[in-house]
Amino acid sequence: MNTLMKNVEFSKVLNLKELVSYQEGQVISRTLAQTPNANITLFSLDRNEGISKHITAGDAMVQILDGTAEITIDNNTFTVKAGESIIMPSNIPHSLQACERFKMLLTVIKH
């Protein structure tokens, strides 16, 4: 069977928060899909961990599954909590910081 999704069970109800665990002092990721035009990845970040400022070739949607993140897009900082989402436009610098530990689903769609 040739599938685009990986690292998850098919035809089963999934709780995304349970598919990635917290590790003290670390950023953990689990890729669910990766093609030339799209990436879907689960992340967990321990408190005070972050992803430094960078740009992506595609629009990136962050969906916070647990906890709270501080997300900076260009020079604007947003506090995003569990159940909330934000879109980071392509080619605009952005970064993420864990105010408290958090889990997110990141979907990047490339142009």
Rank of each mutant, 00 (worst) to 15 (best):
T79G: 04
Q26W: 02
V62L: 14
A38V: 15
S29Q: 13
M88L: 12
D74I: 02
G25E: 01
I109D: 06
N7E: 12
I51H: 05
K6F: 04
Q26R: 11
L16V: 06
H54G: 03
I87D: 03
S95A: 14
D74F: 04
L42H: 09
R101G: 13
K6Q: 12
K53F: 05
L65C: 10
M104K: 08
N48H: 07
D66Y: 07
I71G: 00
T77D: 09
N7A: 09
A69H: 01
G50H: 05
T68Q: 14
I55E: 14
L4P: 04
I55F: 13
Q97S: 15
N37I: 09
L16F: 10
G67F: 00
H54D: 05
G25Q: 01
I87C: 07
I86A: 02
M88E: 03
N48T: 07
S21Y: 06
V8D: 07
F43K: 03
I51A: 04
V62K: 09
K12D: 08
N75K: 13
T56E: 14
C99R: 11
T3N: 15
P93T: 02
E49L: 03
N48P: 00
A82I: 08
Y22I: 01
Q23S: 05
K110L: 08
T56K: 11
K53A: 09
S95C: 09
E70K: 14
E49D: 05
N2Q: 10
P36Y: 02
N2M: 10
